[in-house]
């Protein structure tokens, strides 16, 4: 389980998921573009940049 210590498990993102929108094929292999997240909570990070050098799992979901 040691590897999980280096992974931010579940940085959940709310918003912006449009269910019928056409989209890019896939982003695997790409560098992440600059990320601007608002209202980061339950973490000591103030911006996404604070996750530098860490593996991050981003999960997109809604509360409903």
């Amino acid at each position: 389980m040691r590897i999980f210590q280096k992974l931010l498990l579940g940085l959940a993102l709310f918003g912006g998921v449009v269910l019928s929108a056409p989209a890019r094929a896939q982003a695997v292999g790409s560098k992440l573009p600059p990320v601007e997240l608002e209202g980061l909570s339950q973490t000591g990070a103030k911006t996404y940049d604070d996750f530098l050098g860490r593996a991050v799992l981003l999960e997109f979901f809604a509360y409903w």
């Binding site: 931010l8 498990l9 579940g10 959940a12 918003g15 209202g39 909570s41 339950q42 991050v56 999960e59």
Partner: peptide
């Protein structure tokens, strides 16, 4: 839920990843 969360206002990230349904996840390496 104990994990960190934030708001992808304007859906820039979900648009970059082409998220068309939820739940969906993306893994970014170190």
């Amino acid at each position: 839920a104990k994990y960190a969360y934030g708001y992808d206002k304007g859906g820039k990230l979900s648009s970059f990843f082409g998220i068309s349904g939820i739940p969906a996840a993306v893994l970014i390496d170190a």
